[in-house]
Design a binder for these strands. Structure first.
Length: 917
DNA sequence: AAGTAGACTTAGTAGAAGCAAA
DNA sequence: TTTGCTTCTACTAAGTCTACTT
């Protein structure tokens, strides 16, 4: 198992940071974990990192253990007065002690085996268990760790996701209802009383707070349908308001405050339009509107429907039981959806096939083949002719001339042009997904019960558009009328429909680079920064609550601990007809295993069915709590936190800080970790080295957030290639070395390090390699000869004859014979012009190249299953990147792609090199 | 209190676009 | 040029979270 963690000396060093209880620590907000030096072997770290690393860790201060010490038995002791609950007597969670015992039995045993089960179940992706991240804090250590990993990882790995669907996936209701003895009391009381006392606290507070920032406010005004509609009016007055508004000047910091403004304002910003072309710099404006009204005028063309289905050529037909079927376009289209995928994994997936076939049959019933054939089995359907046709079409397309391609592109651009932009309050803004989703087969991820289901073609009748009252109503590009047209200026979508597969809502919004998205993005990061100010207190509180006598509070505290330390998602409840994935609040009994003394093993499928597998050392109290939460009557299938829901959790969070929700912790921890990791940037490194440090930091964050990608199927192959390349370099180095020794045998003594043979340079490889080289050389000579002749011919000169070529080939062969001798003798004659100095220099260069190649190889390995993009796009405050780029003088375009730069113009404008998160 | 609708953010991946090596 | 990747975008699924209903 993950040794790394396990070995860590202090219990939690890794994870548990700490902090929490200690008030003194301040500056360190983060989850950081201490740097546990030990776990990281220094050697592993790349050079630059090393240096950097030791620099910055001031966090050492973090005290780690204290909390644990505390936890002792406290239950009784700590009267959780704070909440008033105490008196109430909400139950008592009983002591840990007892619970311990009882639990010991069952849970301990089985859980203890930390070992992961291996089995596959899970996703198709690489089952690698990604090494988990470990707490953010741990990151540093982690770094080093990764290097080793391969092996280690392997051990850890395994995948089994263990998620067998629980026999009873019932939400633990049972437990709830009939709690065990202990629990009972707990539950009952808590529920009853709690409602009164306990919550009050929270609620009150919450209520009191004014909602602010973008997020909320809706409450007030909204009232169903009517609600929305008429909100736009206010604008005029407001505009003035703007000016008055005193606050918010300092953007960065103050911003949050500003949001409060209750007033609805919308301003149609001044100057009309010269700035038409310019982009609207909303971040330079004074406090913007509040959260309620989003626009005053809104013009757009809604969605672009895809072209109608074009039947396949008559000769392309699917076959059923050997018979070619002539399908009407309606059913042929559906057959084609599957036919195009027959080489993908989906087509092999039982559920996918089942769902597809059910829908396909229904379509066939309505639009049967001309040949009176009843299609009864998918296995007898042969889509290959269709598949091959599609492949041919692809080829054709690829083979088109540049001009043809260009013409097609132009036509497409022209068609799409009207949809690219919309006009909001007189400003031009880019629309995001204006193309109506084409029909196809639903590609649900993981074990989605609906995967393979037919997704219908959208018609105007399916779509509701949202547009300004005075705007001209767009006309659909295919026949039909919109399902509805509304003018709700409290929302930002242009069009909306309900998709038939899951009944989910789909929307057309503006692009990521739009002002609306930019503003809310910025607000998100500001919220996360605000958390910095509260996090110490929050941690202290939940640490305290870990011992609460009120079960609900205790669970909430424990959940929060995980959310904060492990960056888990909130974990809303999900329905039966969705993939069985969980987040923190929805963790079930089987997802968490205990391994004494204080390790908790998480193994579950999270969002997108990505496996989260991690062994974590936790505070003793947390360990006890989990034991308690898994105690007796509970079993596989039951909720771990049966008294907690995301709503409850968020209500509590909101009471600690307005606007705070579970997801803010992810943003905060990600950005915080990133900023901290960037301290490892080599001050005097090359740009490439700096970027490498940046990427390493990015990677830490990605690991923290469990952002994965499937390893490409040619990964192994390409890795082997790279390894061969390295060996080829080593081969060259060897030749240089041997020449040197021929020149001056004394060098062996003088520089003993040169006398050592290159690693993995066995005779076998050398022979193979030389053969390859020979072949290549011969081939090249041949080609050169041909080429030269063509040229000579064109010039009208006379061609070289074959003899010449043969001679040349012979020469080459002779040279290689030389090599063979050298191989045997291990001696290499110095090549012409070789001198000791030159050779030494060349060897040095070769060493460098080898080292670089090795580093590259290692980097690729480390990144093969980690996705950096998601955290860059969604979790890392872009201002950190901008500031870093300025500070270290790295061009921003090396860090942000074009679309990212379009998404974060505000960050570029706002952050200077001293900016900190 | 629990379930649902609604709106918006976050997620991995397929395929297009770029780019470097052959 | 063509090939063989790597990188970037587009796409759309899958979350979060609030407000509304029942």
């Amino acid at each position: 198992m993950s040794e790394s963690i396990a070995n860590a000396p202090e219990p939690m060093a890794v994870v548990a940071p700490d902090t929490t209880s200690n008030p003194t620590i301040q500056a360190t907000h983060a989850p950081q974990v201490e740097d546990q030096d030990d776990s990281m072997s220094e050697d592993d770290k790349p050079l630059m990192k090393k240096q950097a690393a030791n620099g910055g860790n001031k966090n050492k201060k973090r005290i780690g253990g204290d909390s644990s010490s505390e936890d002792d038995k406290p239950l009784s002791k700590k009267p959780r007065v704070s909440k008033g609950t105490a008196n109430k007597k909400r139950r008592v969670v009983d002591s840990d002690s007892d619970s311990d015992e009882s639990e010991a039995g069952p849970s301990v045993k089985k859980e203890t085996q930390p070992t992961p089960k291996t089995n596959g179940t899970s996703k198709p992706r690489s089952s690698t268990s990604r090494k988990p991240p470990t707490s953010p804090a741990q990151s540093e250590s982690d770094l080093s760790e990764d290097e080793k990993p391969l092996a280690k990882r392997a051990s850890a790995k395994t995948n089994g996701n263990g998620n067998g669907k629980p026999a009873s996936r019932t939400k633990a209701k049972p437990a709830k209802k009939e709690p065990s003895d202990d629990e009972e009391s707990l539950s009952e009381q808590s529920s009853a009383s709690s409602s009164e006392d306990d919550k009050p606290l929270a609620k009150k507070k919450a209520a009191a707070k004014p909602r602010q920032s973008t997020s909320s406010t809706k409450s007030a005004s909204t009232s169903t349908a009517a609600k929305k509609k008429v909100k736009a009016e206010p604008k005029s007055e407001d505009s003035d308001d703007d000016d008055d508004v005193p606050l918010a000047k300092g953007k960065a910091k103050t911003t949050t405050a500003k949001d409060k403004k209750p007033v609805v304002k919308k301003e149609k910003k001044v100057k009309e339009e010269e700035d038409d072309e310019e982009k609207y710099k909303w971040w330079e404006q004074e406090a913007e509107g509040d959260g309620e009204v989003k626009w005053t005028t809104f013009e757009h063309n809604a969605v672009l429907f895809p072209p109608p289905y074009i039947p396949l050529p008559k000769n392309v037909k699917m076959k059923y039981d050997g018979v070619a079927l002539t399908l009407p376009p309606e059913s042929e289209e559906v057959a084609g959806f599957f036919g195009a995928m027959i080489e993908t994994d989906h087509a092999q997936d039982a559920k996918f096939r089942e769902n597809f076939f059910k829908d396909f049959k229904a379509v066939l019933d309505k639009y049967p083949p001309k040949e009176n054939v009843k299609v009864k089995s998918l296995d007898k359907c042969d889509f290959k002719p269709m598949f091959e046709h599609f492949e041919r079409e692809k080829e054709k397309k690829k083979a088109m001339t540049k001009d043809e391609k260009k013409a097609i592109k132009e036509a497409k651009d022209k068609l799409e042009a009207p949809y690219l932009f919309c006009v909001v309050d007189g400003r031009k803004e880019k629309v995001g997904n204006f193309r109506a989703e084409p029909p196809g087969l639903f590609r649900g991820r993981g074990e989605h019960p609906k995967k393979g289901t037919l997704k219908h073609r959208l018609r105007p009748e399916d779509i509701i558009i949202n547009i300004g009252k005075d705007a001209t109503e767009p006309i659909p590009n295919i026949p039909g009328k919109w399902k509805g047209v509304q003018h709700d200026n409290t929302v930002t979508w242009l069009a909306h429909w309900k998709e038939n597969v899951n009944g989910n809502a789909k929307y057309v919004f503006l692009s990521a680079g739009s002002s609306w998205k930019g503003q809310s993005d910025r607000a998100k990061f500001e919220k996360a920064r605000e958390l910095i100010k509260h996090v110490d207190k929050i941690r202290k509180d939940y640490t305290e609550d870990l011992k609460s006598k009120v079960m609900a509070d205790r669970q909430r505290a424990t959940a929060l601990y995980f959310i904060d330390r492990l960056a888990l998602r909130a974990g809303n409840e999900k329905g039966e007809d969705e993939a069985d994935t969980v987040g923190c609040c929805s963790l079930r009994y089987e997802h968490v295993t205990l391994s004494p003394p204080n390790t908790v093993v998480f193994d579950f499928l999270g969002k997108d069915s990505m496996r989260f597998f991690q062994e974590v050392k936790v505070d003793a109290q947390v360990f006890k709590n989990i034991k308690l939460f898994k105690a007796e009557p509970k079993q596989k299938g039951d909720d771990l936190f049966d008294r907690l829901s995301t709503t409850l959790l968020n209500k509590h969070l909101n009471s600690m800080m307005p606007g705070l929700t579970a997801k803010v912790f992810r943003t905060y921890n990600a950005s915080w970790t990133f900023q901290k990791q960037l301290k490892n940037t080599p001050k005097n490194g090359t740009v490439a080295e700096k970027i490498a440090a940046y990427n390493t930091a990015n990677r830490e964050v990605a690991i923290l957030c469990n952002h994965q990608k499937s390893v490409s199927k040619n990964y192994e192959g390409s890795k082997a290639k790279h390894e061969d390349k390295i060996r080829a370099l080593k081969y060259q180095r060897m030749k240089l070395r041997l020449q040197l020794f021929s020149l001056d045998p004394k060098m062996k003594k003088k520089q003993p390090e040169l006398a050592e043979d290159e690693s993995d340079m066995d005779e076998d490889f050398i022979e193979r390699h030389e053969t390859e080289l020979l072949e290549k050389a011969l081939d090249n000579a041949q080609k050169k000869h041909e080429k030269d002749n063509i040229k000579l011919e064109e010039e009208g000169s006379k061609k070289k004859d074959k003899k010449e070529l043969d001679e040349r080939l012979k020469e080459i062969k002779d040279e290689f014979k030389e090599l063979k001798k050298e191989r045997k003798s291990k001696k290499v004659e110095p090549r012409r012009g070789a001198t000791e100095e030159k050779l030494i220099e060349q060897i040095g260069k070769m060493d460098e190249r080898i080292a670089t190649a090795k580093v590259q190889l290692g980097d690729r390995e480390k990144l093969k299953d980690v996705a950096l993009g998601t955290s860059k796009i969604n979790y890392i405050d872009p201002r950190i990147t901008v500031a870093w780029a300025k500070k270290y003088d790295v061009p921003l375009e090396k860090l942000f792609s074009k679309t990212l730069r379009e998404k974060f113009p505000w960050a570029e404008a706002e952050a200077n090199k001293g900016w900190i998160f």
